[in-house]
Design a protein around this nucleic acid. Structure first.
Lengths: 114, 114
DNA sequence: TTATATACATAAGAAAGTTGGGTATTATTT
DNA sequence: AAATAATACCCAACTTTCTTATGTATATAA
């Protein structure tokens, strides 16, 4: 992420969730999708993304498949069985963390209310 | 923080916000307040807290005042003028980041709705 | 032809945590 | 009485995760 330096550790969750929704994505595509979804506010840097993808692959969460498109090599990633399980785990971890953050930072906050 | 490894980057904001609400707090008190507010789910470790407090003080966001309470030394922290400004900055940074996170992870999500 | 976009990758360094230790007093349990 | 837990501060080694900078290569637009 470029300008934002907040909540280290959420990149893995982002990658896993996007792959759950899209079944198959390549690195560059992920950076563009995140940029789109946040209207340019979050930019995933390649220096952060590729190591994260390699780590998730090494941990058995992702598998890769190389495709040739117009003389350009693309490395497609998709979730493994363990990867699918991990998505739910990471998602609820993150949601509960964000909930706790709200409880600390906004005492008025109640879950399910704005 | 103990079980959670997601907090990176938000600790400073937590400290600043709690001090804005409470005017004057000492380190141990902050750990207890966070534990209370999150029902034990987030535990700030001393190894994270004290360096963060010292850094914020060095940056001119906090001032300290030592008090003796029952033969025990307490180091009270409070916001400086710059510290007060920084609270709003950090808060909106964090809120916008959480908003972007939601946009990525939950495509159904709209601000102001649950 | 020079810059931008696409597409991958690595490596040095910074930042912010965790883990584990240390010191000291007071309160509670066994 | 002794051991443990709670209160209250601190530091240092290590790890993880990111930023910044760099490298390679092809395709397209100015």
């Amino acid at each position: 992420m470029s300008n934002n330096n907040l909540i280290k550790g959420s990149l893995q969750t982002i990658i896993l969730k996007l792959l759950e929704e899209n079944d198959k994505m390549y690195g560059y595509e992920i950076t563009q999708r995140v940029k789109e979804l946040t209207e340019g506010e979050i930019k995933i840097t390649e220096g952060a993304l590729y190591p994260a993808l390699h780590k998730l692959e090494a941990e058995g969460m992702l598998t890769t498949e190389i495709q040739q498109v117009d003389n350009r090599v693309r490395k497609y990633y998709s979730l493994t069985k363990n990867g699918h399980k991990e998505v739910s785990a990471k998602m609820s971890e993150l949601q509960s963390f964000v909930g706790n953050l709200q409880r600390i930072l906004d005492p008025e906050w109640k879950p399910g209310l704005a």
